[in-house]
Structures are given as C-alpha cells and as structure tokens.
C-alpha cells in the first residue's frame, strides 16, 4: 500500500459552508469547507444514488444530496438521513503552503 497527499485546491477556492468537486482520474471527491480553516474530503458520489455531492447543500458539517435529500456528516462520513443508509468514505486532510491536501491510500 502506498499513500499520497493529493493537492486538491486553494483554501479560498471554496466558500465557507460550501463544497466543490475534485476529480482524479476515474475517481471523484467532494472537498468541503465548514469553517474558515476547517476542510474535509469525502468520496464525491452519494452512496444511495450516483449523484455528485458537490451539487449539494452544506449546513454546518452536514452535506445534503442534491437529488434525494439524503444527508451525511462530512467530517465522519456518517449517513444521517435516508435514503442515504451507507456511510461515505472520508479522507485525512491538511492545509499546507496555502493548499488543501487529502491523503489517499492505495
């Protein structure tokens, strides 16, 4: 297994209480900013249906899926409102040298 820190974006690329999409090859991620220096990364697609969470709505640390209103805690990945039942995969995040990185283990 190897781990890589992925350079996702600059902090100001994301408004506070918002989310953006980050694609890496075939994979897609959602990068959240829940506070001035609070960033989180999860898998990009809702675990209920193939809908990208970056089009969703961030309320505090909760992301709501844009299609069916399923909700997840974007810090823990926990599914907290149906129809979302399966938790999201989350990734460790760090902010360094003015960039937001997340760790990918492969």
């Amino acid at each position: 297994m190897s781990e890589t820190w992925i350079n996702a974006c600059a902090p100001d690329d994301i408004a506070i209480e918002d989310v953006i999409r980050f694609d890496l090859g075939e994979r897609s991620f959602a990068v959240y900013r829940t506070g001035p220096s609070a960033f989180h990364v999860t898998d990009g697609f809702c675990t209920h249906a193939h809908v990208h969470l970056a089009d969703g709505f961030v309320m505090g640390t909760v992301i709501e899926c844009p299609k069916h209103n399923g909700r997840f805690d974007c810090v823990t990945g926990k599914a907290i409102r149906k129809p979302a039942c399966v938790d999201l995969v989350t990734y460790p995040v760090k902010v360094e040298n003015g960039r937001v990185f997340f760790r990918l283990v492969e």
Binding site: H48, A49, K67, H68, K82, P83
Partner: peptide
C-alpha cells in the same frame, strides 16, 4: 412511500 418517492426523483 419515502423510498417510492426517492425512486420517482431518480
């Protein structure tokens, strides 16, 4: 019906 309506939106 909660699940039915989710499918309707999908």
């Amino acid at each position: 019906w909660r699940w039915s309506h989710a499918r309707h939106h999908t």
